[in-house]
Design a protein around this nucleic acid. Sequence first.
DNA 1: GTCTATATCCAGATAGAC
DNA 2: GTCTATCTGGATATAGAC
Lengths: 193, 193
Amino acid sequence: MVTTDVRARRREATRREILDAAWRLAAEQGLANLSLRDVAAEVGMRAPSLYTYFDSKGSMLDAMFAQGYRELDELYAGVRSDGDLAAMLTAATEAFVRFCQASVPRYQLMFTRAVAGWEPSARAYEVSVASYEHMRDRLAAAGVQGQRALDLWTAMTAGLAAQQLANDPDGDRWFVLSRDVAVMFVDHLRRNR
Amino acid sequence: MVTTDVRARRREATRREILDAAWRLAAEQGLANLSLRDVAAEVGMRAPSLYTYFDSKGSMLDAMFAQGYRELDELYAGVRSDGDLAAMLTAATEAFVRFCQASVPRYQLMFTRAVAGWEPSARAYEVSVASYEHMRDRLAAAGVQGQRALDLWTAMTAGLAAQQLANDPDGDRWFVLSRDVAVMFVDHLRRNR
DNA sequence: GTCTATATCCAGATAGAC
DNA sequence: GTCTATCTGGATATAGAC
């Protein structure tokens, strides 16, 4: 049925519009203060109409959460891995810090528990796990092997981003340490081999 | 006036009781869900009575925030600094991760923006700055000099704690990397001298 | 698919009696 | 200093008309 297909596309487009509006408002007034009323108003609707597109506020947040991890996945996929390891890790770290700076609410939704009564559903969580596994495999191929090394790495990149956002959200203070972290880490790997 | 003094003490004791109750409830039901009604009930009062002891919910959170940084300050003051640098940094990192694990709401209040409409007042913020400066001075005395090195250090410890709380709140998975981080960092300092 | 109207609930804060 | 009663505002979600 062609008409059904058209309607499905239209529906998907509206869902996108709603999510875009939600991100926009979250950036303006804080993720924790995001309300369905405001999101609806932002797309020219009233709150109850949103329930045509999402089962609940939680399922809308689920969609945003999964979207964030798909974006991170794409970002990491674009990091060049043909140079030496330190160069690749530097690029990955810089990309990650910029990714976090680009949208504070996205960062909060993906990496902190900033929304009061919500946590990602199992379905949404799977997307984040897939993203993590892709990163793990790419790093392993580049020479970062073992859970312990990977944990050390994620802690350092998470720390850079956290400090950058908390203390210098629009600046470079921790971003510029990306290369130091990468070199330090590569030296650490060499020493423990 | 003796009576006034007694009343001031009593008042201070009640303030303590209220803060203890707030921490307890925050641990049970989440910092973001903390309400004055519940805190009041926990100490056997009704919500309006709390306004005798705190101007607003925000000022209660301010007191909790400042309390957290005073506790962190004491913790760091107790870290032995007579051994070699790597040993001291390992101890400091382990202490910090345990400090964060000991109270998730305290961690959220101090280091994230987990409460919707609140941020620390200027007075409360000063306490956190003082704590930071003490840590900075202690590290400088031990051989960690310069803003860049300090920023690198805070990022790594913040990252360990963040990953530990997010992915293994009651475990050791990132805690056990404290020594690796310390040694890695000391090597980095030596190389850049 | 969108609306109005409403149910239900909970929050912080204040007025004023005792 | 503590209470009851209330103000004010906001949230998610549902019922049912159009």
